[in-house]
Design a protein around this nucleic acid. Structure first.
Lengths: 199, 199
DNA sequence: TTTCACAGACCGTCTGGACTGTCAATATGT
DNA sequence: ACATATTGACAGTCCAGACGGTCTGTGAAA
């Protein structure tokens, strides 16, 4: 039985459009993600798309929030089933790695690059990114049980490494070097947490 | 005095078009880099552009080679005025950092992202990237005077960090954390070189 | 005279967005 | 409870502009 109330219908179509937008960003890239492709891919009329999002720009802005939300939920879900403390470090690193190599992150990457030259995307992505970064660190530091500057530093180095690996992985096949490089960041993180705990 | 021979004229226009393409990639991004914008920006007619590069695709393919060439030259120039050995490490790291935060690299980044979903760009960028990577490592290892696996590893970690920083720097203002993170990679590299030399 | 680097008009296609039409889900009056 | 008016979630057509690429013309170098 399909949804009956207007609110249900509205929410469902809206979410479907956002998911399709993400899928198109992954499949066709930012340059190839046209509103027509999105509507075709979503099996929705032109009127429907423009009813929910008055312009392509508004659609992308909404997609940015959508992606950030999914990302945060994914990390939170991973953090929830861990007992806080030092032992959670490898699991959290792995969770971050998984989140930053999935298709959601690819879509985000497309928008991230677009933000450099598209001011509309930029002014939507910048604050969203700031907030996401803040919330991710909150989850991460709480799960680790420390937020010492040194842990923070190692965490930032890990994030930057994961971004670099994501970029590298776009062209090269998955290097086995990647594992070792991440292990080095994990080690930094562990010693930083150790130091923080023993003081 | 403008060039007189046909060959000079041809080479000059061709180079001018490639430089303009790079400039447009930097200013407008991959999605916004249209052939019309390039010809307007270059002050060249439509016929001229399509005379040199039969299609947009061919122009981008040529631009890929152009960017790789510039990148390699930049690093080689930096390496040339260094005395090989351990003391060259900080200088080489700085040279890589500079090369991977300039506008040439931005243009390359646009094409790198485009390569993910555009098979024509991908099949041109992938081999070019492989060769560039190989030559860069040759220059780097020769300047350092060692090519031990551990040095190679630290070098790869540095490259990936620099890519991650480039990506991060697109949205955030230049973090002072960046310096510290690079310093950590530099330190890894130095100890790896030390180990290689003392064995 | 021939060649070729370039000029610029032209064409079919695609894009984002405006627009009007339709019909079921609601709100309202009785 | 029922009939009727209104809203809103879509459908689908249309259009001006921009896109990449073709084609013919032109003038200076060879």
């Amino acid at each position: 039985m399909p949804p009956t109330t207007r609110q249900q219908q509205r929410d469902q179509t809206r979410k479907h459009l956002l998911d399709t937008t993400v899928a198109c960003l992954v499949e066709y890239g930012y340059a190839g993600t046209t509103t027509q492709r999105i509507q075709d891919h979503a099996g929705v009329s032109r009127g429907a798309l423009l009813h929910h999002f008055g312009s392509k720009e508004q659609l992308f802005v909404a997609a940015i929030g959508h992606i950030a939300e999914l990302h945060l939920e994914q990390i939170k879900a991973a953090a929830k089933q861990m007992t806080p403390g030092k032992h959670a470090v490898p699991g959290m690193v792995e969770a971050l790695r998984k989140a930053m190599s999935g298709s959601n992150f690819l879509a985000g990457l497309e928008l991230w690059m677009a933000a450099r030259t598209d001011s509309a995307v930029r002014s939507a992505l910048a604050p969203s990114e700031r907030q996401l970064g803040k919330e991710l660190w909150t989850v991460f530091s709480q799960t680790l049980g420390t937020d010492s500057p040194r842990v923070r530093m190692a965490y930032e180095a890990l994030l930057i490494t994961l971004r670099g690996l994501a970029l590298t992985g776009l062209l090269r096949e998955n290097d086995q070097r990647a594992d070792e490089i991440i292990r080095a960041r994990l080690h930094e993180l562990l010693t930083a947490v150790d130091d923080a705990e023993s003081s």
